[in-house]
Amino acid sequence: MSTILKWAGNKSRIMPELLAHLPDGDRLVEPFAGSCAVMMNTDYRKYLVADINPDLINLYRQIKEHTRPFIVVSLSLFTQNTTDESYYRLREAFNHNPALPLLDRAAHFLYLNRHGYRGLCRYNRRGEFNIPFGNYSEPYFSLEEIEAFADKAQRATFICADFRESLRMLKTGDVVYCDPPYHDTFSKYHTNGFGKDEQVALASMLADASEKNAVVVSNSDSEFTRHLYRTFNISKVSVSRSVGVAAGEGKRASEIIAVSAFLAASDGAAQ
């Protein structure tokens, strides 16, 4: 299932590899919502989906709770605002109009994502969305994806929280999938960024969580990340990427999928 948003690091293309590592369970917990590709391509009974980006969580809540009005407002933005001038006008309203209703703000977010350069999501230190106009001839309006998401979202709870808060909400037996901003790749995702200290704190919490929960983590493939998850079982995957790839490397990059030792041992015993 493809996703509502264009998203750097979208997991849709590597779902076969991820599904090989994600075990059965009652609830999947995702502390980094991203495009929700994993939620849309798995079949857990319940989901807890979190992200530190309030605009992302607001989008998902509005689609879940007000599907038809969201589609109407969003489609109107797409059909009536096709120039770079209209893009920057809507971006200005998104950044500086505190009276913008939450439903309209969610529609603006989708519009900016689909019309902005490469579908990137980036904010400056003042919290302003600052991606330039993408100059696409016919931006895609993801109607099918919105409708499918609205149906699946009835199983999900969406919260605006950082990974520390969402991981503290774990229940024994939850399956955890973490797709954080990648080390040295997507670290400037939201306002204050996601540097080495955050990577270390996340890895430490996941190591603790793995004593009672199945934990699966994606990240860039580097000496640093391999050291962070040295107690996990690590697989390497090659992925297609248009963002964060150095000149001369084409459009592929290496990532890791780290699986908690507890889960890896359980899989081995089952086989």
Score class of each variant (00 low, 15 high):
Met1Gln: 13
Met1His: 11
Ile4Ala: 01
Leu5Thr: 01
Leu5Cys: 03
Ala8Val: 00
Asn10Met: 08
Ser12Pro: 01
Arg13Trp: 09
Ile14Asn: 07
Met15Phe: 08
Glu17Tyr: 14
Ala20Val: 03
His21Met: 09
Leu22Phe: 05
Pro23Asp: 06
Pro23Ala: 06
Arg27Lys: 11
Leu28Asp: 02
Glu30Pro: 03
Gly34Val: 06
Gly34Ser: 12
Met39His: 06
Thr42His: 06
Asp43Tyr: 14
Lys46Met: 02
Tyr47His: 08
Leu48Arg: 10
Val49Asn: 01
Pro54His: 04
Leu56Pro: 00
Leu56Phe: 01
Leu56Cys: 02
Ile57Gln: 00
Leu59Phe: 13
Arg61Phe: 00
Ile63Gly: 00
Glu65Ser: 14
Glu65Cys: 12
His66Ser: 08
Thr67Phe: 09
Pro69Ile: 11
Phe70Ser: 05
Phe70Tyr: 09
Ile71Glu: 02
Ile71His: 02
Ile71Ala: 02
Val72Thr: 11
Leu75Arg: 15
Ser76Pro: 01
Phe78Ala: 07
Asn81Thr: 09
Thr82Cys: 09
Arg91Val: 03
Glu92Lys: 15
Ala93Trp: 14
His96Asn: 10
Leu100Thr: 10
Leu102Thr: 06
Leu102Tyr: 06
Leu102Ser: 12
Leu103Ser: 05
Leu103Gly: 05
Asp104Val: 12
Arg105His: 08
Ala106Gln: 06
His108Cys: 11
Asn113Ser: 04
Leu120Arg: 02
Cys121Leu: 06
Tyr123Arg: 05
Arg126Asp: 02
Phe129Gly: 00
Ile131Pro: 00
Asn135Cys: 10
Asn135Ile: 04
Ser137Gln: 13
Tyr140Phe: 14
Tyr140Thr: 05
Ser142Gly: 06
Leu143His: 12
Leu143Asn: 03
Ala153Ser: 10
Gln154Phe: 11
Cys160Val: 12
Phe163Val: 04
Ser166Ile: 01
Ser166Gln: 04
Ser166Trp: 03
Lys171Trp: 10
Val175Tyr: 01
Tyr177Val: 01
Pro181Ser: 12
His183Cys: 05
Thr185His: 09
Phe186Leu: 14
Tyr189Met: 08
Phe194Thr: 04
Phe194Val: 08
Asp197Phe: 12
Asp197Gln: 13
Asp197Thr: 13
Ala201Gln: 12
Leu202Cys: 06
Ser204Phe: 13
Ser204His: 14
Met205Leu: 14
Met205Asn: 04
Met205Ser: 07
Leu206Tyr: 08
Ala207Leu: 13
Asp208Glu: 15
Ala209Tyr: 08
Glu211His: 15
Asn213Leu: 11
Val216Asp: 00
Asn219Phe: 14
Asp221Pro: 11
Asp221Thr: 13
Ser222Cys: 13
Glu223Asn: 13
Thr225Asn: 10
His227Gly: 08
Tyr229Gly: 03
Tyr229Asp: 03
Phe232His: 09
Phe232Gln: 07
Ile234Ala: 09
Val237Pro: 02
Ser238Thr: 14
Ser238Pro: 00
Val239Leu: 11
Gly244His: 03
Gly248Trp: 14
Arg252Pro: 01
Ala253Cys: 07
Val259Phe: 07
Ala261Lys: 15
Leu263Trp: 15
Leu263Pro: 05
Ala265Asp: 09
Ser266Asn: 09
Ala270Ile: 11
